[in-house]
Design a protein around this nucleic acid. Sequence first.
DNA 1: CGGCAATGCGCC
DNA 2: AAACGGCGCATTGCCG
Length: 676
Amino acid sequence: MKVVLDFETASFCDLKLCGADRYAQDPNTEVLSLVYHVNNTYNLWSPATAATDDLLRRLAADPSVKFVSHASFEQAVWRWIMVPVFGFAPIPIKRWVDTQASCALHALPLDLDHALSVLGLPVVKDLDGRKVTLDLSKINKKTGMLPAKTPEIMEKVYDYNRIDVVGTVHLHDALGELPDGERTVWEIDQAINQRGIKIDLPFVRAAKRLVNEGSMPLVQEFREITGLNPTQGAKFLQWLGDKGVELPNLKKETVAAILGEDDEDQSEDGSAGGLGELDNLPGEVRRALDIRALVGSSSLKKLDRMEHCVGFDGRARGLLQYHAAATGRWAGRILQPQNFPQGSDVEGGGVEEKISAVLAGDRAAILSTFTRNKRPCDPLELVVASLRHALLAGGGFTFVAGDYAGIEARIVLALAGQHDKTELMAKGLSPYCDVAGLIYGRPIDKYKDPVEYKIGKNTFLGCGFQMGWQTYQKRYCPNESDEFAKAGIDAYRKAFAPLVPRLWKGLEDAALEACHNPGKVFGSHGIRYKIKTIADKPFMVCRLLDEKDIYYFDPRPCLKRMPWSTPEKEDIRPAWKYRTKKKGAWVWVDAYGGILTENVVQALARQLLCRAMERLEAAGWPIVLTVHDEIMCEVPDNGEYTEGRLKEIMCAPVEWAEQIKVPINVETWQSTRYKK
DNA sequence: CGGCAATGCGCC
DNA sequence: AAACGGCGCATTGCCG
């Protein structure tokens, strides 16, 4: 038996800022109503009717009854309110079903309304009910009080509540539950999200003090120079123009090039390539650009999020979103633990030295102890560089983590059947020098030829997915000639891995055939494509080597003008496109060999990671974070959980990967704080 | 005031 | 022969 349910709640706690767990833990949060659907009937539960409701109590206590909801908000409210406050039986992860996870698996929008609308299911808009419900969390500005919960108002809340349950029932009927394999992954995902991760609040507060002290005078100075806030990008660009400094944008590389700071790293973006360093850059312009670079780091906002989202036990929960990318990768939520600045550019001390310096808060000491790009390190830069260390193992515990080295570049070679190269790597030899040697026509040594070595590394890591020479040039060698860039691409495609372009072509042709022949399967390199109808909608389904599927919504044949096509020499070919969500928007994307290969390889890398996560959890290694090719566990600091053991578990054989001979290598670290 | 697009920045 | 992949969050600025 299944119960489909949805809560309406009210609270001064900001759900968006804090996440569902912290929100539900907040003593101010109250349940307004719960609508639950069981045996084709919609039932209402509210704190007012709690005493008379035996049905819900029995359902919760019955281990054979499953609870279905959209996302994990209902789980959080159940765990932190329904159980402790109203005495309901706890409902373990095993008994929850998440309709949002099914949306995610099918590459559909994650929010209920959008998912329903994309699937052509009825969406009821109850703007009035929504407003009335939201208003119950806000002080009315006129009366200075919370609105009264009159019977009329509560009727509107109940109606609004019911609408979402109807939607969830529809969605569940349309998409069904996760297949077994993904169900296992989702349960681990839920365990990770409920475990949470400890945040070092004293460090966060010390860091915020440094940021406030440091940025206030800088913002003030910026205002005096420009009359603007450092965050007003467009207006600042205009101001720069008035000062005779015309910039195409305010990207990091562009600004670095102008300031003459690009000698360290090769500029990734050629947008400022032609501008060069301005020798006569006015002092105030230089100062304004410097200030903006210092205070503009949006990463510092993570400090606020950390403070907000920690629960009363000091742990932040709900930081990962299951299967947020179509390829199955997780995405980060709330404080976004997957994009902490690396911080490796700040030198002068290790993790503990950086932490101590921030805690001490001595600006002068920081400036004299640490450096960044060989200049004194501003306290703000030190905070940015040490942000990730705010994730701390609990007392008596430590983090042990591992990541799969260059896993995507390795999988693409293995899948293409380029076994001469995978065997090389299996022996532990680095392919970067090989690639560089092919480009430069002479042996390249990692230490004697650092520039050449880096080109080799970039070529090896970057060229597996049909990158063109223009992009290659812009990204890796903006100061080299077109011929050099073309030669780099050629070295990879013709000399280093000639089987890889065949993989692109194979997948492209198979998918195109499948698009023109709905219901029939076409494959290449063990990857199979087929148009399938799910919830009455067409999907292109790409089946991987281990039977995991990638979904492409609403595939349609089309004619595609190739990027190199010109009016004189038109090149238009049959292709296909699909709909996906990009940065929140719902857009059409053209499928081509490179993109399909990228998707398949990224998805396979994720599968490898998932199997390792399952083995780790089964062996008693609690996972607290995953970052695409990296797994971090929080384990007792008793010497039983070693890096070597973690590596063994992560490297354990997986059938499909063994068959195509993916050379696997795992790099590990151990620390009480999150680091590289 | 909330929604949305554009821009920018961080990661793998 | 040939193609820039996957994310989330913060801010500004515009619109209704």
